[in-house]
């Protein structure tokens, strides 16, 4: 447990050792605000809620989460520090989880910094703050899922760009699998049971449920399982790579 905390702390403070963290946060906030106001017609809609803001999050994370996770392991491999890191007495699970938690916490900070949105809707009207809180939870869980995918794929290469592209691709499949336009498209070729299965493992249906304010155990369990599965995958990849 102690080493988990130590690893997470080192990783997290690593984000702030360079201006990259600040740049990341600024771009994240600017893009999420821009989309909400200009693409989502936030103000013109006249509804006091953050629906458009959160609906846009799956697509926001599709790029921001891989940008954050790509360096987790690939950079260690490129610099050779992985040899130092993996020969310290840190259990593999703590190494993988510690790095992941640092990235997740960082994205959590980015999410918290969107609070002016929440303040704005509360000034404009009387939103259901319970739903907004649930939406923040959904958004944070989804971020974790994408970062876990990114951890695993970052462990597979020493090239951050490859890690980024792979992660965007896989995350896209996981997201779009449940998106209307894609289901319509493939429903012509496959049966309903296949469609249901795809929807079951894809992020959007679960995300949409929680964003509506319905916090069901099933949807929470989905995200926990998604994160754990990909982190176990990361451990397997690192172990496999030891075989050279």
């Amino acid at each position: 447990m102690g080493t988990l905390f130590t690893v997470a702390k080192r990783e997290f403070s690593g984000y702030f050792a360079t201006p990259i963290a600040a740049i990341f946060l600024i771009i994240f906030l600017a893009v999420s605000a821009a989309f909400t106001f200009f693409v989502g017609y936030f103000l013109e809609r006249g509804n006091a809620d953050l629906q458009v803001f959160f609906n846009f999050h799956p697509w926001l994370y599709l790029f921001f989460a891989p940008a954050l996770s790509m360096r987790l392991w690939a950079e260690e491999r490129r610099q050779g520090t992985i040899e130092l890191f993996l020969t310290l007495p840190i259990p593999l699970w703590a190494a993988v989880l510690g790095k992941f938690l640092a990235a997740w916490l960082f994205l959590g900070v980015a999410l918290i910094l969107t609070f002016p949105m929440w303040v704005t809707v509360n000034i404009l009207g009387q939103p259901d703050n319970g739903v907004i809180l649930a939406s923040y939870l959904a958004s944070f869980l989804m971020a974790g899922g994408y970062l876990a995918i990114g951890s695993c794929l970052s462990a597979a290469t020493k090239n951050q760009v490859i890690a980024f592209v792979l992660t965007v691709t896989v995350a896209f499949v996981f997201t779009a699998g449940g998106a209307g336009f894609l289901t319509n498209l493939i429903s012509e070729f496959v049966g309903k049971s296949v469609l249901d299965a795809i929807a079951e493992i894809s992020v959007l249906p679960h995300f949409n449920q929680i964003v509506k304010g319905v916090i069901a155990l099933k949807d929470l369990a989905y995200f926990v399982a998604l994160i754990l599965a990909w982190l176990l995958g990361a451990m397997a990849v690192i172990d496999y790579k030891k075989a050279g």
Partner: peptide, 9 residues
């Protein structure tokens, strides 16, 4: 390790 890899930051 060979080359003494260390976290540069």
């Amino acid at each position: 390790p060979e080359g003494a890899p260390l976290y540069p930051d």
